[in-house]
Computed example of a mutant assay.
Amino acid sequence: MVQVCKRAHPSQVLLRKGLPTVPDEVSPQLLGLRGVAARAADPSDHSSLLAALDVVLKAALARFDDSRYSRSARALFGLPPGEAGTTLTARREAAARACGNEVHHFRKRVEPRLIERLAWMLQRDAEQFRGTRALAPRLAPAEGQSRLPNDVFAWELTEHEEHLSRVWAAVYALRAELLTMDRMASMEEGFQAITRQAVTAAWRYGLLRSEAERYREVYPPGSFGALGELSVDDIVDLAGWTPPMRDEQLSLLVLAAAENPDRDGFTSSLRAEVELGEAWSQPWLDRRTKNEEGHDTDN
């Protein structure tokens, strides 16, 4: 795993210019990562792969999983508290300051560990895409109004695309709310704000699960369809991590969302389900509490 990135950065080549990446400074191994190709608008285009690599690197650095050195890792590549376009020496100085180290010690002892950790995170990201059996359809600008022929096959194909679009719309709608939850927990938002956002995410979860169940009823695994063998659970998992729910809790969420496509109606129908609400929101509230407890040590 680490060996892959060592081949990609035999002399820490990517660090020479930092971010944004420079074409001559990027190895083919990095551009060939599954997570990069999956995010590229056109995987056959080199500039598209470079843009996707920037996205992957920024995302990994934003979520760098060693809180003591997360700011240093970002500074090293020219992200705040560092500065893009500066020399590697300047970026090393900013990275050393961010963790309170002397520059020489940082370069010799800390920097190699940060590069190795980033390599592991990139490889883990790629492995996540290895098991993904479905990607959202790529879109292109319409050249004009679509006109279907008076043909059963064209109707069936369009109807499937309609169902598929609704599923992916629901996937991304839930993903947006889950990302908001993560950001709010990290920013230590108040209890009430996170709880309100948790209700919105639960509503989107119910809508997605309901939509995925409808899709699978019409297009079961192995039939005509673009989601392969993915189960309803697999489809929902594409949106991101959600708290584990008991079967009866899942049924309540799906039923409430199916009967109440608006958030207010969904909220009213589940107002008495206190245990369900706590099970859904508690993981983010717990994370917020841990952030508060570790705030002084992280800085």
Rank of each mutant, 00 (worst) to 15 (best):
R113N: 10
Q3E: 10
M187T: 06
G228I: 00
D296Q: 09
L79E: 02
A173D: 14
E293Y: 00
A98E: 05
D247V: 12
D233R: 14
M245N: 02
M1I: 13
W155Q: 14
L270H: 08
R138G: 05
T132D: 07
D298V: 08
E278N: 12
E156T: 14
D125F: 07
N101E: 14
P141W: 11
S269E: 12
E213P: 02
Q12E: 14
L148P: 00
R74T: 04
K290A: 04
L79W: 07
D24G: 03
A62N: 04
A212V: 01
L33I: 11
D237K: 07
P244T: 12
L148Y: 01
F266D: 10
A257K: 03
K290P: 00
S11Y: 00
S165N: 11
H9R: 15
E213W: 08
L227K: 00
A169Q: 12
R209Y: 03
T267W: 06
L57R: 00
V2T: 13
C99G: 04
Y219K: 02
A201D: 11
M181N: 13
L157Q: 11
L15E: 08
H160Y: 00
V218R: 09
A134S: 01
D66W: 07
P243C: 09
A202K: 08
F106K: 03
Q282P: 05
R263A: 09
A136N: 08
G144M: 02
R246W: 07
Y205D: 00
L30C: 02
G265F: 01
Q249F: 13
R34W: 09
E162A: 07
E188D: 10
D234I: 00
S210R: 09
Q197L: 11
A185S: 09
R68T: 08
W203H: 15
P220A: 02
G222V: 07
D65F: 04
D296T: 05
P141R: 11
Q123A: 10
Y172N: 13
P149L: 08
R7M: 11
D237C: 05
A41H: 13
D45S: 10
S251H: 08
H163L: 11
E127I: 15
V103P: 04
N101W: 05
T289G: 10
